Amino acid sequence: MSKIWTVAVVGCGIGRTHIFEGYSRHPDKFKVLVVCDLSEERRTAVAAEFNIPRHTASFDEVLAMPDVDIIDVCTPPGLHFEQTLAALKAGKHAVCEKPLVGSLAEVDALIQAEKTYGRTILPIFQYRYGNGVQRAKRLIDLGIAGKPYLGTVETSWWRTADYYAVPWRGKWATELGGVLVTHSIHNHDLLMYLMGDAEQVFARIATRVNDIEVEDCASASLRLKSGALASLSATLGSTRQISRLRLCFENITFESGLEPYRPGDDPWQILPANQAVQDQIDAALKGWQHVPTRFEGLFAEYAPGLETGKLPVTLADARRALELVTAIYTSAATDLPVDLPMGADSALYKSWLPTAPVSVAQCEAP
């Protein structure tokens, strides 16, 4: 019999969704023992809704609980690094919502901390799950799609002043960024998940929709390591909310549906170049087994992954997503293209928060 992992969920906003869509769908894999939130009303409501035996306002109390295997960090982004690191030091595995942390330096510190403390961090990239994206992934991995040509990713969502009435939102120190880190990061991860890593980025950002510190509009032009090109656009000012990916390969063009928060789900269009390619597609997808969507699909693979070490999403994946964020912010600050990968010598390696201007000289190659 496989182990049932015991969980403490810290933060009952998106944390409730983790419980509802993830843990509660897999009672043979997880048991939530405690919820932690500063709001007594919110944590008692979530505990009652899901029959969770304990609740507390104290994160330190959670760290000290000997019967907790996993701490799920669903707090505001500015707390993620210190709380995830504290979980590892306490001997717990850690699930952490996006953005994982606020810099490449912090994610590299967590990569080292995993080795030091012998515990695992499980980043959240739930959009990878669903029949649509997973069918595309299979065809790409089998080589049926062929050479990647061009990808476009649109994250066109709608956020108003009411959304930013929550005190930590819209501020660099607490949200760590805007549309790039809180909204479009999942869709941009999907691009690289399916088409491969970025090699160069040129980007612009702007704050045009709301009276906030962070950006709410962004566009970027990418060259991928494969030689393929990609364009990204993200806004929080679209009165019709959509997420859309269109990926053109040598033999197949993939088009996602438009559902903003479930882009991995069907319907995805799989458009072959000819009948011979269609025959290959039919053979590859014959007997397809349903892939649960979002957190249900992700958490289903996290449980066995903790035992085997073969995780569906790793810190390397989280670093790749944050590296793209860093490159976009760097390019926008300097009006220059930025090459990837980015290491400790990169101008915004320690932080992309705009506490000081980034000079052109910092970003030019020697």
Rank of each mutant, 00 (worst) to 15 (best):
P167Y: 03
W157A: 00
W158Q: 11
V166C: 08
L142K: 15
T155Q: 13
D141A: 09
I140P: 00
T152A: 08
I124R: 00
R119P: 11
G143L: 03
R169Q: 07
L180V: 02
S184I: 04
I121K: 01
T152H: 03
A161W: 05
Q134G: 10
G151I: 05
Y129F: 14
G177A: 10
Y129R: 04
Y127T: 00
R159L: 14
W172Q: 02
H183F: 04
T182A: 11
Y149F: 07
V181Y: 00
A113V: 08
K171R: 14
A165P: 02
G177R: 01
S184V: 02
W158N: 15
K147V: 09
T155A: 13
E114F: 05
L150Y: 15
W172V: 02
A161S: 14
T182N: 15
A136L: 03
G146N: 13
H183I: 14
F125Q: 03
A145P: 09
K115M: 14
A161E: 15
R169C: 12
H183A: 04
A161Y: 03
G177K: 00
A165V: 05
G132V: 04
I124E: 15
R169H: 14
T155K: 04
D141F: 04
R169V: 11
L139R: 04
Y163C: 02
A136K: 04
T182G: 10
A161I: 05
S184K: 07
A113L: 11
I140Q: 00
K137G: 02
L139S: 08
Q134S: 13
G118N: 09
Y127Q: 09
E114P: 10
G130L: 12
G132M: 01
E175A: 15
I121C: 05
N131C: 05
G130C: 11
I144D: 04
L122R: 00
F125N: 00
K171C: 06
W158V: 05
A136C: 14
H183M: 06
R159A: 13
V181A: 01
G178L: 06
W172G: 00
T120A: 09
P123C: 08
K137Y: 12
D141M: 08
L176S: 01
L142Q: 12
L150D: 08
E114W: 06
K147C: 13
D141T: 08
T174V: 05
E114A: 07
G132R: 02
T174A: 08
I124Q: 15
